[in-house]
Design a protein around this nucleic acid. Structure first.
Lengths: 192, 192
DNA sequence: ACTGTAGCGGAGGTACCCCTCCGGTTCAAT
DNA sequence: ATTGAACCGGAGGGGTACCTCCGCTACAGT
């Protein structure tokens, strides 16, 4: 009833350094990377990221030997947050819980599509994140389907792609994005 | 009843050269650019494009002094094709005509999002293309709305963004993409 | 306070890309 | 066939990004 109804695992055992200065640099790098990827997409300059973090390029490479390492860490971080959010929504109305979570999902994904794009399908961590996310959010859809609030002829993957695709698009303003999202979600209720 | 029910304008007076060899190079460059943009996104290497076209880099720059020139020409080309398609669908059933056109739209746009992205909002030609596209496709939606096949509380812009967003996403396979698109389109019928 | 070591920054080699410029080539009009 | 204008390719200068390497710094454990 209370607490977390389904397990929320931390996906990556992040290699955060022990020493104080090192840990500070590590965090600064992650923040800078998040920002840079959101702004410039998957091929943001690593040197620029180091610059933003106020850190030498060597430090970046020591913490994340590969561009992919950086991607994975940033991405896994986001997914962890999302999984926690799903747990907190478990006691709301089925349809409301689902849409509220999708809202969060959209918020995190708008700026993160670059990261997902770069990792899609080719990474072990990505696979783990995916499973984690499905485990966390999937029940929200199933519950809505059981109560008849959502059509039964679709799965959680369909839903996520739909929302991800729509939210990743450039709209005139947030009102239009929400309008379009609402229309598409009407399709999710419509089937039955 | 016959021919084109609404005007289909050629948007850019393309500066295709007169001389035979020059014209051949021009075409090769456009093809290579289309391909490269689809593959590598907006910042594909111009030198690579010239290489693909089997042409010196100088020739590329003579024909398209600016990366934007190349973008605009490629993009305008696509839009022209799409406008012609709309004209040809005018005598089908309203809903069927609309979805058939959106199908074409999706096909052209999946690989072209890079071009749209790079041009979005900042280009005069883009504005013209947009208008052309709306003039060509908009009536298909309005017709469907008049007959009650589509909900009235949305406009053509909403619909295009929705379809563009969904089709630009990576799916497991085409079946999933079509399934998700169908669900969203159910939302377009649902409102009323 | 001392000290060994984990961690730091950034110079610099390599690679690629952008774009200009010009000697040579090819077309088409006579 | 001739010829001059239009067009060609690619060398090369300038810039930026990637990534390695190493002399120096500052932390943490005693």
């Amino acid at each position: 009833m209370t607490a977390t109804p389904f397990p929320v695992s931390e996906i990556v055992a992040t290699r955060r350094p022990h020493r104080k200065d090192a840990a500070r640099n590590y965090d600064a790098l992650l923040d800078a990377a998040r920002e840079a990827f959101a702004e410039h997409g998957a091929e943001a300059s690593l040197e620029d990221i180091a610059r933003r973090a106020g850190v030498g390029i060597g430090t970046l490479y020591r913490n994340f030997p590969t561009r992919r390492d950086l991607f994975e860490t940033v991405y896994a971080d986001e997914v962890n947050t999302l999984c926690r959010a799903a747990a907190e929504l478990a006691d709301r109305e089925p349809w409301e819980a689902l849409t509220a979570w999708l809202d969060r999902f959209a918020g995190y994904m708008v700026t993160k599509r670059a990261v997902r794009e770069a990792l899609d399908g080719e990474s072990g961590i990505f696979q783990a994140c995916r499973e984690s996310m499905y485990a966390a959010g999937g029940p929200l859809l199933e519950r809505a389907q059981r109560t008849g609030a959502a059509r039964a002829d679709m799965d959680f993957g369909d839903l996520l792609r739909m929302v991800a695709g729509i939210t990743a698009t450039v709209f005139d303003d947030d009102a239009q994005r929400n309008r379009v999202l609402a229309i598409a979600l009407d399709g999710v209720r419509a089937g039955r």
